[in-house]
């Protein structure tokens, strides 16, 4: 049984180390230092924050101008 527990804790530790390592990689390459930028990376010049990008067919962005930029917060 001792060996079982050793193995279990061993794998937990190995696993923890690998996770920390991957996190370290992410930090080293700047993937954690710019959350704002990462969060905004899904937007484009022509699909900026503040603009809805999905509508029922026929509604379109011209359907309700209040849904465009500046209408919230």
């Amino acid at each position: 049984m001792t060996l079982v527990y050793l193995l279990i804790w061993g794998t937990w530790i190995a696993f923890g180390i690998s996770t920390i390592w991957a996190l370290h990689w992410a930090a080293r390459h700047g993937h954690l230092s710019d959350p704002e930028g990462a969060a905004r990376s899904i937007f484009d010049d022509d699909e900026p924050p503040g603009q809805m990008t999905d509508f029922f067919p026929g509604d379109g962005p011209d359907g309700d101008p209040s849904l465009m930029e500046g209408s919230h917060d």
């Binding site: 079982v4 193995l7 279990i8 794998t11 696993f15 690998s18 390592w21 990689w25």
Partner: peptide
């Protein structure tokens, strides 16, 4: 390089639980 380390990270996660929940029992 990044993809490899990312890959290695995720591999360990499964490997660990595999050992703990499958091989050891």
């Amino acid at each position: 390089n990044r993809s490899i380390s990312l890959l290695a990270g995720v591999l360990f996660t499964v490997a660990a639980s595999f050992v703990g929940l499958v091989l050891i029992p």
